[in-house]
């Protein structure tokens, strides 16, 4: 579904990513892990058009998307969440989720200003879908609250609702459980499980190993901008290079 080919990114000569290749398969959960500074965020930014890769390609369903702008990639059907929450604090919870349906809401300013009947009907349908999404994440009773007053865990769930409401073909989740307590982590894990069961394709960037091991079909490990391993969670867990990257040099600690 999504294929990275020899993707590299340099920041002023400093390589942040070098020659990273892997593939995300439809209906699966692919986890991207690696120590801090491994290049995970750079990678996700290159995939979503926030950054332009220095070389290499990103293919989505066979078409190269690495030269497209961020909004064009979003319109191809790739949604994402952000590591440090990017909700719109002044909008209501419902409106935040509705922004996840921007691609379907129509983009003509003149039509919007005239508020023709077909747009009103469409707006009503979109609201219903957004409310359904909120219900799925257990936030239905907070739909008209301003997003700013929600607790951190609720905000994370609003972001998930926003990322999934448009039924994107691929969802990139940038550390969905960072900063959550154990109970909240379990709840989000449960929701990700449901998403997977519903047939969504997920690319999960996460530090929480328990979550990754439980959820992922495939794990890709990055270290210092390079892919050092990939495979099933069990394979990766036994891989000596991965242990080294995470725990430091084995000889030194032995």
């Amino acid at each position: 579904m999504l294929r990275l080919e020899q993707l590299s990114k340099n920041f002023g000569g400093l390589p942040a990513l070098s020659q990273v290749s892997f593939e995300v398969f439809p209906g699966q959960v692919t986890a991207l892990i690696g120590p801090n500074g491994a290049g995970k965020s750079t990678l996700i930014n290159c995939m979503t058009g926030v950054l332009q890769p220095s070389s290499g390609r990103v293919l989505f369903r066979g078409a190269a998307i690495s030269s497209l702008a961020a909004h064009q990639i979003a319109r191809c059907g790739i949604a994402r969440t952000f590591q440090n929450l990017k909700l719109f604090p002044r909008l209501s919870v419902l409106d935040n989720v509705l922004t996840g349906l921007t691609c379907e809401a129509g983009s003509s300013m003149v039509m919007a200003m005239l508020r023709l009947p077909y747009l009103r009907h469409r707006e009503r349908r979109l609201r219903l879908r957004a409310l359904e999404a909120l219900d799925r994440f257990g936030l239905g009773d907070k739909a008209d609250w301003p997003a700013a007053v929600l607790a951190y865990g609720d905000k994370k769930r609003v972001e998930l609702a926003r990322a999934t409401v448009g039924n994107p073909q691929l969802i990139l989740l940038d550390e969905p459980v960072a900063g959550l307590n154990a109970a909240e982590t379990a709840a989000v894990g449960e929701q990700l499980h449901l998403l997977r069961r519903a047939g969504h394709t997920l690319l999960l960037i996460e530090h929480d190993m328990d979550l990754v091991m439980k959820l992922a079909d495939q794990v890709v490990v990055l270290d210092s901008g390079q892919k050092i391993a990939s495979g099933t969670p069990a394979e990766v867990r036994r891989n000596p290079r991965v242990l080294e990257a995470y725990l430091g040099c084995m000889e030194a600690t032995a």
């Binding site: 926030v50 909004h71 319109r75 922004t99 921007t102 809401a105 129509g106 003509s108 005239l114």
Partner: peptide, 30 residues
């Protein structure tokens, strides 16, 4: 006309833009 605009998807896209440009683009706002 302005009230209609801000109550539409286009208007929400604009609010998103004021909140965070990168997030707005990730949601499909040009």
């Amino acid at each position: 006309l302005c009230l209609n605009l801000v109550r539409s998807g286009v208007g929400r896209g604009l609010s998103a833009l004021a909140g965070d440009e990168i997030a707005a683009a990730a949601l499909g706002v040009d």
